[in-house]
Design a protein around this nucleic acid. Structure first.
Lengths: 214, 214
DNA sequence: GTCTATAAGTAGATAGAC
DNA sequence: GTCTATCTACTTATAGAC
């Protein structure tokens, strides 16, 4: 059972660094210093490996979303959940490198991922509505339609911001990646906020930075 | 010479509909009702095919960008160029389905694409600065920093909005795709605009819609 | 220009010995 | 549990006939 776990961890590392599609089962076995046959003993193939890694990603995300929905979190908690979501995305970033191809290749993941996105989307919409109701965001023009578009944009950041940064040759570590993503969301929302609220958000950012450094 | 052109057009169609990575040289030859050997006579391989298609995309985009920069276009023209850019992106959408993998596979394209993105990025920044100077956008808080982030977000829409729509199972035709993209940009900029300017933008949208329908 | 035939390379998968 | 050996399937690429 320990070997199985080891294979998973090393695979995740390899996938994240080199891309899932660039690695064959043999490559993974070589890196692990075991034979391909042995790898196939533990996992029926790359299929089972990727699916299990996705499982872990999904569980982590759903935990966060449910926490948010059920426990009636404060907005601060909601907001800090954003950080953890991007942390999560970074840790499983191989998955977001070429999502379309990956979902096509591993079709059992596709419906699950779509469901996850829908959940996430509703979560974001609640976050925005919450910010609006609490007066953190205060703008009469923020109609339901506008909120939908903002939600889409934030979802786009979830699913493709990492790819975009790679595309622009910005090789960011976890921390810088998360920070850039949150900054991007703040840019989206900034115009709807007063100066006090903006300062609150920026304080959150700094807080998170210090927490991670210390 | 006519067959060569025919191959290019059919390949573009196939790539757009099924994804470049899902098609082998044999598949393309079959669709064309010619032999693989014949295909290899005209193009050294998928490599040469894809590169030549990219070339066409690049030429089209650069034409637009240069028009904008040199001819000192009015802001209206600038804005309408956005439509045409997304039109272009849609016509070569296979390219944006999994950009990272594609650029890794066809390495001669990578530096060219990056250069193109830089140009486009500067172009967008000029558009935003222009809107600011002309008073279409009127907000004292729009510092240089904020403009950079907005530019990034718009670039993200250029490179990944199509992928995102596919991911969310929204199968849009060219027209609906362009409209959704422009709406997304408008949502970004709306809070910085007065009601009059917003109406102008929406008028642009309707105009474009009618033009394309009629 | 176009075809057939075939080589060469690679990924995925399994059987059977240890 | 782990290994070696091997097989299938697929794609790219080329040589040589028509």
């Amino acid at each position: 059972m320990k070997r199985r776990e080891h294979i998973l961890l090393v695979s995740l590392e390899l996938f994240n660094n080199e891309g899932e599609s660039n690695l064959s089962a043999v490559d993974i076995a070589n890196e692990l210093d075991i034979s391909p046959g042995n790898l196939y003993y533990h996992f029926k193939g790359k299929d089972e490996l990727v699916t299990e890694l996705y499982q872990r990603f999904e569980v982590g995300v759903e935990l966060l979303l449910h926490e948010g929905l059920e426990a009636k979190s404060t907005l601060e908690e909601y907001w800090l959940h954003l950080y953890v979501l991007f942390e999560h995305i970074y840790n499983y970033r191989f998955f977001f490198r070429n999502i379309s191809d990956l979902l096509q290749k591993y079709q059992s993941i596709e419906p699950r991922f779509r469901r996850l996105m829908e959940q996430q989307s509703r979560w974001v919409e609640q976050l925005l509505t919450g910010l609006l109701e609490e007066g953190v965001i205060a703008d009469p023009n923020l109609a339901a339609e506008r909120i939908k578009h903002l939600t889409d944009n934030i979802m786009l950041l979830f699913t493709h911001w990492f790819q975009f940064q790679v595309l622009r040759n910005r090789k960011l570590g976890q921390h810088d990646f998360i920070q850039s993503a949150i900054l991007q969301i703040m840019t989206l929302l900034a115009p709807y906020m007063g100066n006090l609220q903006l300062q609150f958000m920026e304080a959150c950012l700094e807080l998170y930075q210090r927490e991670k450094q210390g």
